[in-house]
Nucleic acid binder design. Structure first.
Lengths: 138, 138
DNA sequence: TAAATTGTTATAGTAACAATAACAAATAGA
DNA sequence: TCTATTTGTTATTGTTACTATAACAATTTA
């Protein structure tokens, strides 16, 4: 699952939970409502649980629910939780010891540039709350 | 080869050509100097040739050379040439007709957001010339 | 104790990627 | 004209990554 698909799937799941914030929904129901595999969705939601975005209830009648108001959940923390790699993959040619010094400097240049882009993207995502997405898409 | 690796490899090759802008260098020499496969490099440079960034000379004593001054070559055109996909892959969950209307709206939201990010990235790259990279890394 | 649910691992099939080789087309120069 | 060389593109082969799902231990409620 690509970074962007994970992100949109997560937002769909969280939006579904936001419909009835008090009610616990299990992975089968949520997955059915957004058309993804329940097992895959559980692994996404388990990460969001560690981030403190959703609450997990195990066992009979268990499931998930939002642990915060949707105005207090932003895209950046969702994105950073579910995606270990960064948006703009920083895999410039690996620091091959045979590489010339100038090539290494170019690698460093791109690592710095990509980090800068990454920060820009995360700042942009930080401005976007789950609530604002729901308002725009309801 | 990932987008970012293609980009840094291209810049390394162009920087190498910029050392002696008048001299034609063949793919074996360029590839050797930056530690990549000559065949792979040729396919990168052939795209840059179509973009009008390098000039190609086929046959005996052929090779490549810059077709413009390095102050007139920017990262955005290199990036857009070599990479058909965009930096922030826009593969939100494919428009499954079974998807609920709300899910589709969320897909549209993310497509718009990712396009916006893409424009930001390209604007940033447009500011960066090959010359400025060479100055910083020499 | 039984039923249900998460969280994680395993599995198997498919697709993508990497690195290289191969070769037709083109060209320069003898 | 012939030969050597070089690009541009396709093919190949092995490997890695991904996808979608199943399975099941651990946990929890009643």
């Amino acid at each position: 699952m690509s970074a962007s698909t994970k992100l949109s799937t997560s937002v769909k799941a969280l939006s579904y939970l936001a419909l009835e914030p008090e009610t616990v929904k299990n992975s089968t129901e949520i997955a059915g409502s957004i058309g993804v595999n329940a097992s895959k969705l559980r692994s996404l939601l388990s990460v969001l649980a560690k981030q403190g975005i959703v609450e997990t209830i195990k066992g009979k009648d268990g499931g998930f629910r939002l642990s915060r108001k949707c105005s207090e959940i932003d895209l950046q923390e969702i994105y950073c939780g579910i995606e270990d790699r960064k948006a703009f993959h920083l895999d410039v040619h690996s620091a091959d010891s045979a590489e010339k010094n100038e090539a290494k400097k170019i690698n460093r240049f791109f690592n710095a540039l990509f980090s800068e882009i990454q920060v820009d993207i995360e700042n942009k995502m930080k401005q976007i709350t789950l609530q604002s997405i729901i308002q725009k898409t309801q």
